[in-house]
Design a protein around this nucleic acid. Structure first.
Lengths: 342, 342
DNA sequence: GAACTACGTGCGTCGTGAATG
DNA sequence: ACATTCACGACGCACGTAGTT
């Protein structure tokens, strides 16, 4: 009886309903909703009451359509539950929410080229004013993604060769901190368990580790390639434990350091007595590993904040920035490193 | 010259532009965009070409306004980077994305009453067809949140006394698994490091732990209240390590178990020789703790999937469900538990 | 002039009904 | 009769102009 259209969509009360309830015009309701000044206090109260009583909530679709802005930014993100991504996303979300905007999530399940491309075109149809890309893999450049022109984009943790602003932790600095710390303790050289090949962060940490060793005139052991998981650190650790010449290892993240230390324990090698271990990230748990892990702290919060700031600036200026922001790191020395036994 | 309005909003090309370019009416463009059948192949091609040439992308705001649906669901989430939340959110996001919907994130930074209430009213104004609430604290019931009537809601991991569907891990089952496992190994009783007081999950695990001990006729040691952090587990662990009568501890999550084990190590008590430890969650790292942690695995993926399913059903039926889904757990036995030394 | 009302317009999309071939 | 296409209007909101108290 009361339904108007065959497909009964759930439509809430509109301004017109509020206006009728409050006995004012739609204009006045609009003014109240937008916090304009030229409304009598008594009238405003009546309108507010009417809003409450009819359960009015502004239709953001209509508002977006009218204003040409969605007040929403999209986040393309791979591996959501990953420690770093999750922390960064949290920072992004907070910063975005502080501005009164929404963040629309676009998860990319796997690293398939087509899927990422699809994600882009899909998200680009969505109601967003800009996009933050949080994908650590190289997928980006392989296939030249065509983002809708004019849609501001900021990339987190990728390469700077894109035509968009990039925000990232200063991976090189962090890896140098870690490597130098071990060298300074007197270790002849430092082994490295790297992250997966396609990761920018992994690549940079590895390059910096190598450069640091070369700068110090030390020989560089072969790189051990992991995949960020504790298990990959464990696997490499089992082999490193067999080699008594290994006295110092820099793992590209804390999880791999954890797995590494487990392997060393299992093989009866002590940390840091026989082998010193440094991680990267400084996840909360790192202080409670056994032994507490010396690691490089990176500020995911700063990365997220900076990305949002950059994106918002792009949106406001309607410009295409290309700035590169590098967030500094910090070495946190705990109990997993010491001078070599020799 | 070309600008029309003083505030030059970035507006993309519309159907009208495509129509002009292709020499057809807007309706035909709409038909093509929506994959309707009654369009001549030649015309369709011409329209598609025009779309490409002008860089058309559908305006989802207009679409939402027209259709009365946003094809987006909101997620109110506290403590985004928390291990469990992050995993659950990931599952939610995947399930939602699989349906071709967007998920709008609404982070709640802290547990302030007013803030949560504000978050609700804020999000309720957003462009969402339904809401998933992922807040572990009790804040929900204190202040009777008034969600806009008719907006479907599903609650994850809270109490069932709400008028919305609830999805949660079977906390009671998991805690019973953990406690019985230790009892079966021959321990007289089991100590418990609980989660924070306001957490439903913490409360349920604790209740089940207590009930299991009572059912077995064992005395229940005083509860040690933590806050999920490894550090809180460490602090309690330092004291537990002093008491030689403590031979078995069930920590309400893996992080606290980690901190506990660190404290035991520091105090020279062996795990599981002197003290057996069980955690909860089975985070990836747990297998690489030292020693590898016996723990209760919960399926965040299943929780997330179920929540989305329930919400989508509510949206489709335009109904208010109140179903309660409990996701089963699984005990994963590793090396941190053994029979008591005595 | 302050505080409003009344009315009209346009944002982009898409269902409806009518018109074309 | 039929397939294809077109013109019109409405979704809810935000503004502008003109008029009222």
């Amino acid at each position: 009886m009361t339904r108007r259209s065959p497909d009964a969509r759930r439509r809430g009360p509109s301004m017109a309903d509020v206006a009728r309830e409050a006995g004012v015009s739609g204009q006045t309701v609009s003014r109240v909703a937008n916090g304009k000044t030229n409304v009598d206090d008594a009238t405003r109260e009546r309108v507010l009451a009417a809003m409450r009583s009819v359960g009015y909530r502004p239709n953001s679709a209509a508002r977006a359509l009218r204003n040409g802005q969605f007040r929403s930014i999209g986040a393309i993100i791979s591996a959501l539950p990953t420690f770093g991504n999750s922390r960064t996303l949290s920072a992004v979300a907070s910063a975005v929410a502080a501005e009164g905007l929404t963040i629309a999530l676009m998860p990319v399940t796997q690293s398939t080229q087509s899927e990422v491309t699809g994600a882009f075109s899909w998200l680009s149809e969505q109601a967003v004013d800009g996009i933050i890309i949080l994908i650590e893999q190289h997928q980006l450049d392989e296939n030249e993604i065509e983002l809708p022109k004019g849609l501001p984009v900021v990339v987190i943790g990728a390469d700077a060769r894109h035509e968009h602003p990039v925000v990232d932790t200063n991976q090189a600095e962090g890896a140098a901190f870690a490597t130098n710390h071990l060298l300074d303790l007197g270790h002849r050289t430092v082994w490295h368990i790297a992250g997966p090949p396609l990761s920018y962060a992994a690549e940079r940490r590895q390059r910096s580790w190598r450069a640091t060793l070369e700068r110090a005139g030390r020989e560089t052991p072969p790189v051990l390639t992991g995949d960020w998981s504790a298990n990959s650190g464990y696997c490499h650790g089992l082999r490193l434990a067999e080699d008594p010449s290994v006295t110092a290892v820099f793992a590209a993240n804390d999880q791999m350091a954890l797995g590494l230390m487990r392997a060393l324990h299992e093989k009866g090698r002590t940390v840091p007595g026989d082998v010193s271990v440094v991680g990267f990230d400084d996840m909360e748990e790192a202080a409670h590993f056994w032994p507490p892990l010396t690691t490089v702290r990176q500020s995911f919060e700063a990365v997220g904040r900076n990305a949002v700031t950059a994106l918002l600036a792009e949106i406001a200026n309607n410009s295409q920035g290309t700035a590169v922001v590098e967030v500094p790191t910090e070495l946190v020395v705990r109990s997993s490193t010491a001078a070599p036994a020799g």
